[in-house]
Design a protein around this nucleic acid. Structure first.
Lengths: 110, 110
DNA sequence: TCGAGTCCCTTAGATGATCTAGGGGTAGTC
DNA sequence: GACTACCCCTAGATCATCTAAGGGACTCGA
């Protein structure tokens, strides 16, 4: 029962992190994972088996759109852009995240 | 796909919140849920269907121990106490929570 | 030129926390 | 006598994430 391995992500934050990354412009999946890893000072790690299904979900939902291109390393890569709907979704999720994480902080502080 | 209803809890924080609540002394389940609700300024809401299985898990794991008693309202109630093992677990989970939520904050701030 | 390493994508299946939605019993109050 | 608040329990579903696999293509050093 005791889960020994440290989690690499907080449940429920992946979509938000992805959408936030895409705000700076189109990126391919692999780069999104790297960006999150780096911007979090290597604390957060997005597994590929989590990332790609999440991208698929977000695309289905209309939050992002995809097109095939070529990466800086000259490899075929699927680029994602955030849509208007995606920006709205991101704002909502960021608001929710703030509300809840602040609430947890409050409880733990008392 | 679009989940419309606002979540009432951050996934992965329930055990931590419960253990933290029990630090002040023994409490019965119903009161734990109320405490979390109140201390979070009514933002966090613990459903009974989440709470009791979590208490059962924690007891199985040896993080808390239980005994039957009578509540302030003169009702039969199951009281829980945090164990030494539970305090250790709580410290670890609090550390993990801080690390990860800070990391999310960092990413979102950039 | 060949092998290793990195880059990039995909997917099936397992896992596990939480919620939904039911159940039931008891005490106090109108 | 009914109603409300208090208190506990559990089966089943849901859903995000991870594990673990597989594959193709480019680059660079030996």
């Amino acid at each position: 029962m005791a889960k020994s391995s440290a989690p690499t992500l907080l449940q429920g934050t992946l979509d938000l992190l992805i959408l936030h990354s895409l705000q700076r412009g189109a990126m391919h999946g692999y780069a999104i994972a790297q960006t999150i890893h780096l911007l979090s000072d290597e604390v957060l790690k997005v597994e590929e088996g989590s990332l790609y299904p999440a991208l698929y979900r977000l695309e289905l939902d209309g939050a992002i759109s995809a097109y095939w291109g070529v990466s800086e390393n000259n490899r075929k890569a699927k680029y994602y852009e955030i849509t208007k709907r995606g920006r709205k979704l991101m704002a909502e999720q960021q608001e929710t995240w703030s509300r809840l994480s602040d609430a947890v902080q409050r409880v733990l502080a008392r």
